[in-house]
Simulated scan of single mutants.
Amino acid sequence: MFREAGEAAGAVRRLLDREQDAIAAAAELVANAAGPITTAARGSSDHAVTTFKYVCETMLGRPVASIGPSIASVYHAALKLEGGVHLTVSQSGASPDIVALQETAARGGARTVAIVNVADSPLARAADLVLPIHAGDENSVAATKSFIASCAALQAILAGATNDARLKTALHALPDALDALQPASTDGLANLLAETSSLYVSGRGPVLGIALEAALKAKETAGIHAEAFSTAELMHGPLQLVQPGFPVVVFVAEDAGLDGTLDAIQRLRDVGGRVVPVSTLDLPDGIRTPATGHPVTDTLVFVLAWYRAIESATRLRGLDPDRPANLRKVTETM
């Protein structure tokens, strides 16, 4: 897991170097879609889609709907998606339920885009457009470099759809920022995670997808019960569980949600929470990550910091992060 997470920068470089034509074609579909933009994914890939949803809605003004694969594979529903674009994100491209949903979306009138690591997969072969992420072999059960590369592919599509020069520049700066993250910077967080049995992870807007991914990794590698919430949602019912010493990791992006997130951090500390911010900013008791030049791409450096911390914490807890007892790499669901 540690080694593969460290290969994420190379994957992003390959993606941006080799797939400009596919990225441009997908961007044109998204920008000009006459119908709805829909998505399908499972696990870590679904967290990448969550980040895409927020960025698409805030930067392009286009709502994004996530469709549960069981709509097609179990309930056999017909979908009305005329003029739409349906994006599926999958490391393996092999799970029957997402393949079935892509077929249903196509029958319903949508153009289909498969964002996959395995370019010769059932999902890719059936799609109108394939965007390989070039992450290479990923043997650890925990997805790391494939998650980061999938997010980068989705962000590149939106950079093209919006013609946002700042985001395009930041994407090309992303690999260097990933490489610049110092492994030792996450040691303190790793030690904290190794000692806890439960925690919250939080982020607002595009960072929510990163928080969801972090919580999943805590569960599947270290066996820690972790829940992810929007920073705004955390201020409601979930705040009641924040007792003195309760760990809360907050991913803090330098975007329009910054002031509200900083206020939430103070509120969490006021009730006794042990808060660790992860940000490009130098925040008290936090981890400062290298900046890419855009808050959207900065989130992918945040998640690399988390991968390193949780991988180390898992080993400190006497577990093997590469081989969780109850999981396997490819899960085929219906």
Score class of each variant (00 low, 15 high):
12 V>T: 13
13 R>G: 05
14 R>N: 08
23 I>K: 01
45 S>G: 13
58 T>H: 13
58 T>R: 15
59 M>I: 11
69 P>N: 15
71 I>R: 03
73 S>Y: 03
78 A>K: 14
78 A>L: 12
97 D>Q: 06
98 I>N: 13
100 A>H: 12
101 L>I: 01
104 T>F: 02
107 R>S: 12
108 G>F: 14
115 I>L: 12
117 N>G: 13
117 N>L: 09
118 V>P: 09
122 P>Y: 06
123 L>K: 15
131 L>Q: 11
132 P>L: 09
133 I>D: 15
136 G>F: 04
136 G>Y: 02
138 E>N: 00
140 S>I: 00
141 V>W: 13
142 A>R: 00
152 A>H: 09
153 A>Y: 10
161 A>H: 06
167 L>S: 04
169 T>S: 07
172 H>G: 04
177 A>N: 10
188 G>W: 09
190 A>G: 03
200 Y>I: 00
201 V>W: 06
211 A>Q: 05
212 L>W: 01
216 L>V: 06
219 K>Y: 11
219 K>A: 11
222 A>S: 15
228 A>F: 00
232 A>V: 13
236 H>K: 09
238 P>C: 11
240 Q>W: 09
240 Q>N: 07
243 Q>E: 14
245 G>K: 08
248 V>H: 12
248 V>E: 01
261 T>H: 07
272 G>W: 05
272 G>A: 05
273 G>C: 04
276 V>I: 12
289 T>W: 02
293 G>D: 02
293 G>P: 03
294 H>M: 00
300 L>Q: 10
315 R>M: 10
317 R>L: 03
329 K>R: 05
